[in-house]
Write a protein that binds this DNA or RNA. Sequence first.
DNA 1: TGATATTTTTAGATCAATCTAAAAGAGATA
DNA 2: TATCTCTTTTAGATTGATCTAAAAATATCA
Lengths: 224, 224
Amino acid sequence: MTTRAEENYLKAILKIAEREKHAVTTNAISREIQTTAASVTDMLKRLAEKELVDYEKYRGVSLTERGRRLAIQLVRKHRLWEVFLVEHLEFGWDEVHDLAEELEHIGSATLINRLDDYLGNPKFDPHGDPIPNIDGKFTLRHQVPLAELTPGQHAQIVGVREHSTAFLTHLDEVGLVINSELLVLETFPYDHSLRIDLQGRQVVVSQKVARNIFVKPLNVDAHV
Amino acid sequence: MTTRAEENYLKAILKIAEREKHAVTTNAISREIQTTAASVTDMLKRLAEKELVDYEKYRGVSLTERGRRLAIQLVRKHRLWEVFLVEHLEFGWDEVHDLAEELEHIGSATLINRLDDYLGNPKFDPHGDPIPNIDGKFTLRHQVPLAELTPGQHAQIVGVREHSTAFLTHLDEVGLVINSELLVLETFPYDHSLRIDLQGRQVVVSQKVARNIFVKPLNVDAHV
DNA sequence: TGATATTTTTAGATCAATCTAAAAGAGATA
DNA sequence: TATCTCTTTTAGATTGATCTAAAAATATCA
């Protein structure tokens, strides 16, 4: 069995490993989990003991196959609960993270697989992040940052890079929500902002926001 | 904030207090929670410190108003999750206890109130136990043990006294499930068993089973 | 390369929750 | 009332998870 704390470390290690090429360092984990480096070292020893990570003093850490499977199952649980909270209990996409963080530790494979079926085996969570299936496989999808589009391109919003409440509520306010379609009208070289048509309304999007939104380009010509 | 362990003690104290008239003893709690008397004493001191219980050495313990409110909210959460698991995720009434035991510790008033609405504000859980409403009030209901009925009486099964998996799966096998209606045909003084008509089928029910099933007598004459 | 800065680990404490074994208190009864 | 039994509490240890402060290892760069 794994404890809640151990699970949180595994998830953190997976998250860091996904975004960085080099080995996962003690300090990176302490930043991610908001704890001291000393606590991380302690925990890494325990996780190595349980063969959930490969760890060598001063050399950083990586997940073992078992550790990786466990971490991915946690991600699966987290994202499925988020879908439930948003689709059935009417929570906003900006409100579900902390709750899912608690729910993900409930340990029953049956529960999560029934929940998956109940929700219709969704492939993406409310933020557009892929949900691993029962075997830990993620659905890949062609996506690019909104910031990379050029005038004339049509696209559909499919995800976000940032997950902070501040960012998500801002997107809600502006109407830049998952699944909405847009057309890039103009890009301003001066500050790299974009003017877009968002389902009939014209909106200006700053570079900061555009970099944190993922879109799927739509080939409009195909309809002609 | 209360920890998981503290919450489990509060629930145990409430449960014991409900079924016994005298003060809740250390030993009764240690039996209920499957722990040692020494651990219970320790925890009671901590709970008294937090003013969740009134505790005097060697004198037993009782919940304070705050402790009681907290314990009842836990019961509310537990039973609502059971409804969710049975009605939406297709779990059997004999399979949901342990899962609900974990889910009940997830602390968000909003979550549980949304869940309550989502489920249609049920008044009873899958075992027929009343679900406290948002203010902690239970819905009372006229119910008697099946063992107390006499020949000729019609009744509907509304609850169970025992919650063990063994008992519940036995009831499933025999068809003695919540909401089914029955008519007492005969009682056998020798072993206090009953012969009943259960929706067309004749079934003999032992005293042991009949004492652990709650029914609501139906006034059949009212239909004439 | 060697001094300095940064990262990581160790040493030693603390806290919650638990245990066993021993001591103390309460209740029952001869 | 004195004694025996059962219950409850205390004393002392252990485990997981965390901390701070100090020591050790590694990285940087003049």
